[in-house]
Design a protein around this nucleic acid. Structure first.
Lengths: 340, 340
DNA sequence: CATAAAAAGGAAAACGTTTTCCATGTATTT
DNA sequence: AAATACATGGAAAACGTTTTCCTTTTTATG
C-alpha cells in the first residue's frame, strides 16, 4: 500500500485536484452532489489521507500543539499531559511533548524547534524559573510567537505577558495554612519548592500572609526549600527535623514534597497525623494511596490542560486574552489532626 | 520579527537558494569557503531557521517520533516518555505523545494521524491488548508503516512482527516468585494486570512456571486480575482477602498494583512485611517512598525508551531488526520478610 | 427573451525547501 | 595544446496541498 496523493484520487474520479480539495475541505465553493459522491467514493476506495506536511506548508501554520514540561515523568505534569493530549485528540490534532529537565537552556532550544515547526500553540506546563539569564531570550521568543499568530498559554505564573490558565497559588497557600490553623495548629512549618520558581514562591507567600493574618509568629527557620521531587521533600523534612524548632503541622508546596516528608517523619518515629499533620497542594491520583492518605488541595490539572487546548484551538475572532483562574478545594483525608 | 525564508537569505547574500541549501546541509557538492562564510554570516544576522514542514514535504518523510501510551499520567509511561523525549531531543527532533486511554479504537485513530504526518518512527509504549476486533486493522497499519520505510518499535509484546525493546517479562515473573520462595514463602498470591494484556499475561505465566518448578501447588483462587492502576491493586487485594485462602506473600504484576495492595492490607490491619510480603515489578521512582519502601524489580524504562529512539534514528544501512532484551534485577527494600 | 447572477469546475500559482540537471571556469593530465 | 576532470554555482523541477483566478454552464430576474 503505497502513498496515495490527491492526484491519484482526482485521476480516478475524473476530476481536477481542485475539486477533490473542495470536497475534502467543504469549502463554500459549490460542488455538485454528483461529483461530491463520486469523489467521496474514490477517497474511500483508495483510503486517501491528505499529507499534513503539505497542508501545513501551504497554509503556513501547523496544526500541532506543544506542551513544555519540566519533567514528564512527574505525575503532576502527567496529569496535565493527559488533559492536553486527550483534548487535542478531540480536535484531531497531535501534541509535541517537550521535556526540559529543569534546564532553561533546553527550553530555549525547544522554542527554536517549535518555531521551525510553526506549531499552532504552545502550552507552558509550569515550573517557570525566575532566571535573569534567560528572561531576555525567552521574552524574545514569546514575542516572536505572538507577532506571528501562534498562541501561547501558561499553566503557571511566568513573569511574561501571555494567556494564563491557573489556580490562585497564593490563595491556595493561604488555604492550607488556614486549614491547619483552624484545627488548632499554631506552629506550622513549610516545605517549599525552589525559591526562584514562580509557583512555589506564590504558595509560600500565601502561607506567610496567612500567619500574619492570624497574628502568628513567622520564623525563617520554619521554612525548608527543595526541588519538587519526593527526594527533595524527604530531605527538606529532615532539615526541618534537625533544626531546633517545634511544629505540629507542615504545609507542603506540592504532593511530591509531602510524600517525601511522610517517609522522613515515619523514619523518625513520628506518627501522622498524631505527632505531625501534613497538608499539601496537588491531589495527584496517588494521594489516596499514601500512608496515611494525604489531605491535599485538589488542583484540576487535567481540566487546566484541556482548557489551554481549547483556548489555542479557538478562532482568532473569539479573543480570549485569557486569565482564567480555576477554583481549588481541599480533599480531606487522614494526614491532618484536629488538636483544638 | 517576521518569518525569514531561504530566499531572503539568498538575496541578501547575493547567491542562489541552492547555494544556501548546500551550505546549510553540508552536502558534498562543493561550496567555496568564501561563499560559505558569506552565507553563514547572513544566516546568523537574519537568524534564519528552515521551515520544517517544507523540508518534510520535499524529503517525503518527517523527522518526528511518536510515542503511543495507554495513560501518560501513569508514572510507568512517564519514565518511558522521559527517555524518549530526552533522547529525541539529543537528535534535535520532537516527539508526539499519543494517549489512547486504553481504548484500541483511539490507537487505530492515532495511527491514521501519524501516517498522515509521515512520522519517522513510532514507539509502542506497551499495554498492548490481545483483542481480535482490532488485530486486523492494527496489523494493516503496521504493514503500511513498514512498507513505506517508517520504523516501528515496541516496548512490550504486541503479537505483531516488529522491532522490540523489552525485558523478559516471563523471566521477571519467575524472578519475583523465586525471591519470595527463597525466603520461605510457600503460599503466594498474585495480583495481575488485565488478562488480555500481553505483558501481564507473560509475567503471570512466569509466576505459574516458578511454582511448578518448585513443586508448589497452583490455585486459581490465588490470582486476582485488575487494571494497572492503584485503585485496581487496592480492589484486587481486597478480593484476595475476601476469599477463603491464606497467603504470606503477594507478587504484583507492577508497582501501581503493589501500592494499591499496600493500602488494602494496611486497612485490614496487616503489617507489611510481617504479616504479608509484597513484591512487584517496575521500580518506579516513588517505590522508594511507599510505606514500607517497596521491594520491586528495576525495569530500565528510561533506557528502553532511549534505545527505541536510537533504533529509529539509526540509518537504514545498519539493519537492526531488533529484539533487544534489557536485564532486570531486584531492588531490595523493606516489603518482603524472610520467614525461613 | 435578454441579461445578470449563481453554480460548477479547472489551470496554475503558491507555500519553502531539496535535488537534479546544466553551465561555466579552472586545474590537471596526456 | 588539447582533452579531461573537477570546482563552483544557478535554474528549474519536485514534494502535495490550498487558493486565486478564470471559463463555462445553469438558473433566476426583469
Amino acid at each position: 500500500m503505497a502513498r496515495i496523493s490527491m492526484e491519484d484520487v482526482a485521476a480516478r474520479a475524473g476530476v481536477s485536484i481542485t475539486t477533490v480539495s473542495r470536497v475534502l475541505n467543504n469549502t463554500n465553493h459549490p460542488v455538485s452532489e454528483k461529483t461530491r459522491k463520486k469523489v467521496m467514493k474514490v477517497i474511500q476506495e483508495l483510503d486517501y489521507k491528505p499529507d499534513i506536511s503539505a497542508q501545513n506548508l501551504r497554509q503556513s501554520f501547523n496544526n500541532i500543539i506543544a506542551l513544555i514540561t519540566r519533567d514528564i515523568s512527574d505525575p503532576y505534569f502527567g496529569e496535565i499531559a493527559r488533559g492536553v493530549t486527550e483534548t487535542a485528540n478531540k480536535y484531531g490534532i497531535l501534541t509535541f511533548v517537550c521535556n526540559t529537565g529543569r534546564d532553561p537552556e533546553n527550553e530555549v532550544q525547544y522554542h527554536e524547534l517549535l518555531w521551525q515547526h510553526r506549531v499552532r500553540g504552545i502550552i507552558l506546563g509550569g515550573g517557570g524559573l525566575n532566571l535573569e539569564a534567560y528572561k531576555l531570550k525567552l521574552q524574545e521568543q514569546i514575542n516572536r510567537y505572538k507577532e506571528n499568530g501562534h498562541k501561547i498559554v501558561s499553566l503557571a505564573p511566568q513573569g511574561f505577558d501571555m494567556d494564563y490558565v491557573m489556580i490562585d497559588n497564593r490563595g491556595t497557600g493561604e488555604l492550607i495554612t488556614d486549614y491547619l490553623i483552624a484545627r488548632g495548629h499554631t506552629s506550622i512549618a513549610y516545605i517549599s519548592g525552589p525559591q526562584n520558581a514562580y509557583t512555589a514562591f506564590d504558595r509560600l507567600e500565601g502561607y506567610q500572609l496567612c500567619l500574619k493574618k492570624h497574628n502568628l509568629p513567622y520564623d525563617d527557620l520554619m521554612i525548608a526549600y527543595s526541588d519538587d521531587s519526593w527526594k527533595g521533600g524527604y530531605e527538606a523534612a529532615n532539615i526541618l527535623l534537625n533544626r531546633s524548632i517545634k511544629f505540629t503541622g507542615v504545609c507542603c508546596g506540592n504532593d511530591n514534597l509531602a510524600v517525601g516528608a511522610l517517609r522522613a517523619f515515619k523514619e523518625r518515629g513520628l506518627a501522622i497525623p498524631e505527632d505531625v499533620s501534613v497538608i499539601s497542594i496537588g491531589d495527584l491520583p496517588n494521594a489516596n494511596y499514601t500512608a496515611p492518605p494525604l489531605t491535599t488541595v485538589r488542583v484540576p490539572l487535567y481540566d487546566m490542560g484541556a482548557k489551554a487546548v481549547t483556548i489555542i484551538m479557538s478562532d482568532d475572532t473569539q479573543k480570549y486574552n485569557a486569565n482564567i483562574i480555576f477554583k481549588t478545594m481541599i480533599s480531606e483525608r487522614q494526614s491532618v489532626s484536629n488538636i483544638k
